[in-house]
Design a protein around this nucleic acid. Sequence first.
RNA 1: GGGCCGUUAGCUCAGUUGGCAGAGCAUCGGACUUUUAAUCCGAGGGUCGCAGGUUCGAUUCCUGCACGGCCCA
Length: 492
Amino acid sequence: MPETSDEYQRRLKKLQELKHKGQDPFGYHSYQRTHSSRQLQENFAELEGQAVSVAGRLIAMRGHGKSTFADLQDANGTIQIHARVDVLGEERYEDYCELDLGDIVGASGELFGTRTGEVTIRCEEFVLLAKALRPLPEKFHGLQDPELRYRQRYLDLLANDEISQIFAARSRIIKAARDYLTEHDFLEVETPVLQPIYGGAAARPFTTHHNALDMQLYMRIAPELYLKRLIIGGCERVFEIGRVFRNEGIDTRHNPEFTILEVYQAYTDYEDMMALTENLVATMCQTVHGGLTFTYQGNEIDLSPPWQRMPLIEAINEYSGVELTNLEDTEVARRQAIEAGLEAERLSDQPLGYIIEKLCDRFVQPNLIQPTFITDYPVSISPLAKRKSDNPQLTARFEPFIGGEEVGNAFSELNDPLDQRQRFEAQAAARAAGDEEAHPLDDDFVQALEYGMPPTGGLGLGIDRLVMVLTDQPNLREVILFPLLRPVDDQR
RNA sequence: GGGCCGUUAGCUCAGUUGGCAGAGCAUCGGACUUUUAAUCCGAGGGUCGCAGGUUCGAUUCCUGCACGGCCCA
């Protein structure tokens, strides 16, 4: 709404008149509340007849001449306020009637129940704690426009009750994971977000610059390489929950910054990480659903362990019919993928690993509704994972899928510094061939490995994706408070 | 990157086969001392996303652009 609108100007005038009268609503620094609206609603039997005070946003007014009902909204609910001219007096009652929807108000008085049973405060005193100059979205339909919901999330939270429930669930899910890990003797750590060399995932980074050191820095795409340095340092069990940044497209499953949980445990392998994944996700689910079953986009999902396991090559064979027997013959794989239905032009000049990932994305992933570990990814697309002892072309790696969504990545960590260097060199070659997501060589990390890293299992979980699945949201933006959108000028 | 769809009052949405722009809520004025999507009477509020084109006339048709949504890649 433009500031020239009648409504804005009318409210601005009210504010100025209040200031003239020495009642600047923005002059208050605090307000003493005795109860929240929820406490009043839940404990009415004990509190009836007591003097109470509340504060919140005025979201509805129903005037009846010499008395007025209003609804005040605070963090966890609403409470009705009843103002009467014979209680407040003529002057204060008129002031009360001048309040606008959206104003932040403190009110106090005796708690009573109306004849319809509504818990209500008889308004004996009230104070305007902040003036709302702009009107709120309509109360009945809420705020529907997805663009406005994301751009002005505060209005979404005010107008749509269920939104705050999603973010409360998100908070509980993260707390559940953190509690589980700390109770199992994992050390929570924080590693650099600004990194001179990025790594730990196949992604393009955001680049920035440090002025004093006059050096290029990258926003991390993963904390992995630092957490493994801590394993080398003897920490044995570490985890980090933090934001990572990937300079790629935005869609229903991707936001340029998202929250990752990474866990590393010395003397374990990827099978131990499967068990840890089952336990962690079960704990998260318990805190939201009170059990291990829930619905995601119409599908009943059961997280009871053990989850199904399926080697990637077998899964591709089962769901696409493509039989990848020779993991070195890219041409055969490309021809088979095209026959299976992948677009030929997308696969030309692409390495085998890319073709395998596309086959999985297209044919396998949509079928993985019940929790499933896809295992044994090729070495070429797993530069930080340990080779399988029985097949050096494959790695001891898995990705967990739930509800058709990829929610993580884990493996037995590669701890052979000589092999790691070769893998980095293969990545450098891929980069030279045009793969912008290939890992840069991290000499410092290889040097760390040369001091000896115990065999270690590592796990990364995408928190946003998990929250999306566990709260039955169809879109990642529904579980990120402020998703990235293009800025827009005020023309609209 | 491609396809489809959307953008009309503060919000939620109608609508115009091209001819003065509509509703509900919100707002303003009036009535009303137990309402709760309060009710009743009356009123105001619009660059119809932006820019071009076609036309006597465009919010409507065409083109481009912006932002967003869904699907595909």
